[in-house]
Write a protein that binds this DNA or RNA. Structure first.
Lengths: 108, 108
DNA sequence: GAACAAGATAGCTATATAGCGATATGACTC
DNA sequence: GAGTCATATCGCTATATAGCTATCTTGTTC
């Protein structure tokens, strides 16, 4: 059984809903739809893996720790995927995860 | 213009997401899919208008004020519709509102 | 219109969330 | 392997949310 109980699934859904119930995190998800358009390239090919944490934090206009936590909440909810490369962490949308959340909300 | 600004719409979306990012409120919406099955009838024909506040509070297992606030949050978010009748308030799902929210989340 | 009952609001406490600055961790670079 | 830079975590404060009891408001009934 890779599937949790109903209660666990409910709690997970609640966590995912809380993850997107934030203006800043909605913005992050929106920006990550098109990293090339929304963020500078740190080096050739970076944007394949999404946007550098550094630029997300900067664009959010919050402190680095605050941005880091928003990204952690999105990561824990399975909505973005971090990729470590060189000294940086790049974040991209987890499209299957997002699609699954949308499907579950569709059952409301 | 009946439509608010983008910022207002975003804030409204955030409020709606926060409204459903709660186990208790998700339960209320679920129960209201079938008031007849989930709640006793207060008098003939009541359930057309949804479930009586009283029974929702009781089934939630929280105090009356706590239940009242949950219902207010759902009402403010446009997800349920209250109907006052005799001494009671009945709540039913606002299906168009829920559908609109689902559609907006689908754009995530 | 007096009595009563349902629901909303007020005032409070406890917990959760979001922000910050400071610091620890981890990974490149030399 | 020492230094440095990006990111994560810690410790704190401020605000938001959720619960309670007590009380106010409102609508119904007699």
């Amino acid at each position: 059984m890779t599937q949790g109980s109903t209660a666990e699934r409910s709690t997970e859904l609640e966590a995912q809903l809380k993850a997107i119930a934030s203006q800043r995190r909605l913005l992050i998800l929106e920006w990550l739809k098109d990293p090339e358009a929304n963020f500078p390239s740190r080096e050739h090919g970076d944007l394949e893996h999404g946007a550098c944490n550094l630029f997300i934090v900067e664009r959010l206009g919050v402190s680095q720790p605050a941005g880091s936590r928003h990204l952690r909440i999105l990561t824990d909810a399975g909505l973005v995927i971090p990729t470590r490369r060189k000294g940086w962490v790049y974040y991209r949308r987890n499209e299957p995860g997002i699609a699954e959340l949308i499907a579950r909300i569709g059952e409301l």
